[in-house]
Simulated assay, not measured.
Amino acid sequence: MAGSYPIGVPGQAWGATELAAWRARQRRQRSYSEDVVSAIERLGARFEVVQYGRIEYPPDSYPLFAVRSRDWRDGLPCVLVTAGVHGYETSGVRGALLFLDREAARYVDRVNLLVAPCVSPWAYERIQRWNAQAVDPNRAFREHSQAPESAALMRLVEPLRGRFLLHIDLHETTDSDETEFRPALAARDGKPFEPGQIPDGFYLVGDSENPQLVFQSAVIEAVRRVTHIAPADARGQIIGSPVVAPGVILYPFRELGLCAGITGARYTTTTEVYPDSPRATPEQCDEAQVAAVCAAIDHALSQ
């Protein structure tokens, strides 16, 4: 698919016809209810489950759930874990659920945990990056958001702004970024597709306005015990950005409308697991996400 996409006219941004054609190509491949909602329901005995919104893409309707500490205490700092902002990034969703099931209990007396395991359920079911409107939720965390998924999460978080110690957003970088999603983006926006390079391994994206490199490096070192860390390319970059510490690059979170920029937390990061690596299993990818969450909380609390 290098340089082309089967929808639209090169050089022309999509209109309603192209959007409808793109949406018609999307097929439900897995169940949000069976995979995610059922797992959240099982956690209800140990945590408080809150519905913070509903996404309507007729005929589909998706309740949005977050899981929070049952013993919520105003004197404790808040920790936000988000996943499934890009629905196709599976280890983020599974890693968030695994963290809740296996590791969260050891933190609930020290922090108020708030976990949104699957922010974009329509995309989760279709193994897609965008929502049904061909909008990337992870570029839409801004005022008057075009993505209802992003707007709902911002409404959930807003009453707690200023109280967050940490926000970690769980993502993946996949081969399909290069074969499907970036060509689709170029076609949607009427721009030429410029091929890139997918890094082999785990890396982090920190905030260029608040890098916290000691924190980022602590997370990298914890994940290194689970899976390999992406090296810099020949230009000293990962996905076109300079490597500022082993396995760490920086983006301006708020300027780009990224999820990890919504809390104003002291510590923020975005994980990037590489599930297509021949050196990593799906289980390792899930474990890498869990290791990253635990290391992030541990470091934040140690400071």
Rank of each mutant, 00 (worst) to 15 (best):
C259K: 05
G201K: 10
Q237I: 02
Y203S: 06
A132Q: 11
E272I: 15
G264L: 08
R225K: 12
R188G: 00
F253W: 02
G236W: 13
F181W: 14
Q216E: 15
L170M: 13
T173K: 10
W130H: 13
Q216S: 12
A140S: 15
L213M: 12
V248I: 12
D169L: 09
S145C: 13
T268W: 09
F181P: 02
D136Y: 02
G240Y: 08
A134G: 03
T174M: 13
T270H: 02
E180F: 11
A230S: 07
Q212E: 15
S150P: 06
P195V: 15
F215I: 01
L213I: 13
S145Q: 09
R142T: 07
R266L: 05
A152M: 09
Q133K: 13
G162P: 07
H171C: 06
H167V: 14
R235D: 15
T268C: 13
I239H: 06
L166T: 06
P159C: 10
S241D: 10
Y251L: 14
E221C: 09
R224N: 05
R129M: 09
I229G: 03
E221T: 14
Y251S: 11
G240S: 05
R224H: 07
H228Y: 06
I239L: 14
F141N: 03
A140T: 00
T270Y: 08
V214N: 13
F181D: 04
G190R: 02
A218I: 00
I239P: 01
R188Y: 06
A186P: 01
D233P: 11
F215A: 04
E255R: 12
G247T: 09
G257T: 02
A132Y: 11
V205Y: 01
G240L: 12
G236K: 14
R161Y: 04
V214E: 15
F181L: 08
A218H: 13
R224Q: 14
A187I: 02
A265T: 04
P192D: 00
L258R: 14
R161A: 10
D233K: 05
P199D: 04
S241R: 15
S150D: 09
S241P: 00
E221N: 14
E178Y: 10
N210V: 04
A151M: 08
Y203R: 06
L250H: 05
I238K: 00
E180Q: 10
D200C: 07
V226L: 09
